[in-house]
Amino acid sequence: MDFQPINKNVNEEDLNLIYNSIDELNKELNNVALEIFKNETDKKVLSKPSHFTFSIVHRAIELNRGFKTLSEANNWITAINLIRLQSDNCMRLFALSLVPDRLDFYQRILNGEHIRNLKDGEGNKMTDNYLSKKLDILYPGFKMLYENTSGFIHFSKEHIAINNDKVENNEDFIMYIRLAETTEFPVHKKVDYAFNMFVVGKELFKLMKGYKLSMEEFMKIYK
């Protein structure tokens, strides 16, 4: 897909609209988890793989809340990291859909095994690189977002770039020594980061809806 440059024709109102969308997304994530829970417990069943998904939803909601709290406090350098952690939630939930035995997968994770060492139904190790490529087929752009935000987790060129600006049309740059309590981002970057956080959460919600449908089909065996 073609990626467009960041839209600079935005303002604080646009940012607040995204915050509201993230709040609504948290409700949607909570509701789909409750629907899965009710569908199973109505038949006096509660599957361990569903417990795995509930744990992911709980983490996702807390990450969304944390992102909003940090960004509203103008701590964007910390908030940006949470986009990468939310993409991690997507990859972990997606991994559940790739294994032939979900109960075995759940038990192995509970025993401390890393997903990157486990294999999917085709015999491929489910590393982050592998899962991000597979998810990129479902959600074009996922891998690029995952890779870009990974740069914020460990100190990297991403942090150095925050502290300088290139002078247009040449290789000179302005270096900033930031010793203040906060780093000020232009509003268009804030909107872009917040929108990416929302998009990744929405992709997680779609994966949860897919899991819900698969479990509804599976639960038909319980009369």
Rank of each mutant, 00 (worst) to 15 (best):
R65Q: 12
L93Y: 01
R102P: 00
L145H: 01
R92D: 14
L25W: 03
L25H: 01
I221D: 07
K119S: 10
L179P: 00
S47N: 05
I137A: 12
N31Y: 04
F152V: 07
E12K: 08
I77K: 05
L29W: 04
P140C: 06
K27F: 03
K119Q: 12
K166A: 12
I137Y: 06
P5K: 09
A95I: 09
M175R: 07
N163Q: 13
N148W: 07
T41F: 04
Y106E: 09
I77D: 13
L98W: 05
R102I: 03
M208K: 01
F94D: 04
S55M: 13
G210D: 15
V10N: 05
K190E: 15
R116Y: 10
N9W: 03
K212R: 12
D101K: 06
N163F: 11
M215N: 06
T53A: 15
I177M: 12
D192Q: 12
H51A: 09
P49W: 05
N163V: 06
M144S: 10
V187N: 06
V191L: 09
S71G: 02
E113P: 00
F94E: 07
E12F: 11
F195E: 11
G66Q: 07
S132L: 04
E147C: 02
F152A: 14
S214D: 14
G151I: 06
E40L: 09
L29R: 00
T41E: 08
V45R: 06
T127G: 08
Y130W: 08
I153C: 07
M175E: 13
L25N: 03
N75G: 01
E171F: 12
K133A: 14
V99M: 09
A180D: 15
W76A: 02
F37M: 07
L213Q: 09
I160N: 02
N39Y: 03
L85F: 13
Y139L: 03
G121F: 08
T53Q: 09
A161S: 15
I174G: 00
V10A: 05
N74T: 07
I162Q: 14
D23N: 08
S55K: 10
F94M: 06
K43A: 09
N64I: 07
W76Y: 15
D165M: 10
K220L: 15
K119F: 05
D88L: 13
V99A: 09
F218N: 03
F195W: 07
M144D: 14
D42M: 11
K220S: 11
L34F: 08
A60Y: 02
Y193I: 13
R92W: 08
F52M: 10
F37K: 00
F52T: 03
R59P: 00
H154K: 06
S132H: 02
K209G: 01
H51C: 13
K189H: 10
Y193F: 15
D23V: 09
L213R: 06
K166D: 12
D2T: 11
L118Q: 13
M144Q: 11
N26T: 08
F67T: 10
E35L: 11
I109N: 04
L204K: 00
V167W: 02
N39K: 01
D104W: 00
F37E: 11
Y130P: 00
I77Y: 03
N81R: 02
D120S: 09
S21G: 00
L138Q: 04
L15Q: 05
L85E: 13
S156C: 10
K157N: 11
G66W: 04
I109Y: 08
M126S: 05
P49N: 05
K157V: 11
Y146R: 03
M215W: 04
L138N: 09
G141R: 02
K119D: 03
